[in-house]
Design a protein around this nucleic acid. Structure first.
Length: 313
DNA sequence: TATGCGTGGGG
DNA sequence: TCCCCAAGCAT
């Protein structure tokens, strides 16, 4: 109570946070990124907006190492949305390979078609137009606007949410996703200049992916350590441990998800419609198999061109 | 807002 | 071996 004086710069932990402090976060991240960014193919300067969009969709829930070869094949085969839109959607599913969540391939094809219909074949640079495209949500739309068009938008994925919660919020982990608050908290960290802000967004993502990781953060190798609120809180003894965020168990073995994957793999591996018997062979439980097949047909990932025969659309 | 949706690599 | 994931989206 008596220590209210704002006069003397005492020792002890620095004051909470100041706009200047937040600006430092972006500066440090940008500087680090310039020297440490991974050399990923979709980051090359000549990558088109279409290439950026494809990479973002593929990277939704799929690791970089598995995306890279498939992205290269896709862009070589379908260098523009028009090239993909001219194909049957089943070709997108086939070329998706085993990246997982094949509905993304279907949506990417639908996206290519929509871009042809609405935007004369060019990926739009307007955020709302991007958000309206199939398979493009809050994250992907801003990622494309920032990385392909150098616009100033908060690009918030799970890694950025965690990094911002820690470095700016002083918390061990991000809470449940609350889009509006997440966007605001991240936006507050962005430099004013759009192109620099875009680099800062890439830098935040990269740091979240390779330094400020969930379980075992590598603070000693993180360029933000000196200004990280979470780090400061821990040094002051008022920290929470890296308490692992609680994911849902969601076992995979034996789930409909696995059965769908097995059934779709059969169709993906052949050019001609397969008889029901070929599907029966990959999963014993007929009830679950039928349910999975019905859901694949319902999703449009499979079609039934003739009674009892199934194929990619 | 909670849930369903694939897959293969690493601890 | 088994568990935990890894740059979300749509409903």
């Amino acid at each position: 109570m008596s220590r209210r004086s704002a006069a003397v710069p005492t020792d002890g932990p620095p004051p909470p946070r100041q706009p200047d402090h937040r600006a430092r976060l972006a500066d440090l991240a940008v500087d680090w990124y310039a020297r440490n960014a991974r050399d990923l193919p979709w980051r090359k300067p000549d990558t088109t907006a279409w290439g950026v969009l494809v990479s973002e969709v593929m990277l939704q829930q799929t690791p970089v190492a598995r995306v890279t070869p498939v992205w290269l094949e896709w862009l070589a085969r379908w260098p523009t949305p028009a090239h993909l839109a001219a194909e049957a959607s089943g070709e997108a599913i086939r070329a998706w390979g085993r990246l997982g969540y094949p509905r993304r391939a279907l949506r990417l094809h639908a996206c290519a078609v929509a871009v042809g219909e609405r935007h004369d074949g060019e990926i739009p640079d307007d955020l709302d137009a991007l958000l309206a495209l199939p398979g493009v949500g809050a994250y992907t739309a801003r990622a494309v606007a920032a990385f392909a068009f150098r616009q100033r938008h908060p690009v918030v994925d799970t890694n950025v949410r965690r990094l911002v919660a820690r470095a700016a919020g002083g918390l061990a982990d991000a809470g449940p996703a609350t889009t509006a608050a997440d966007l605001a908290a991240t936006e507050a960290l962005l430099p004013a200049d759009p192109a620099t802000a875009a680099v800062a967004s890439a830098a935040f993502m990269e740091l979240g992916a390779v330094r400020c990781v969930a379980r075992t953060p590598l603070c000693e190798q993180c360029p933000l350590t000196a200004v990280c609120a979470w780090r400061r809180a821990r040094d002051a003894g008022v920290a929470a441990p890296p308490g692992g965020p609680s994911r849902k168990p969601q076992r995979y073995a034996g789930t409909d998800r696995q059965v769908r994957g097995l059934l779709l793999a059969v169709a993906r591996g052949t050019e001609v419609p397969v008889p029901r018997a070929a599907l029966d062979a990959v999963w014993a439980d007929g009830v679950q198999r039928d349910r999975a097949l019905a859901s694949l047909l319902d999703d449009g990932l499979l079609v039934e061109p003739a009674e009892g025969f199934y194929a990619l659309p």
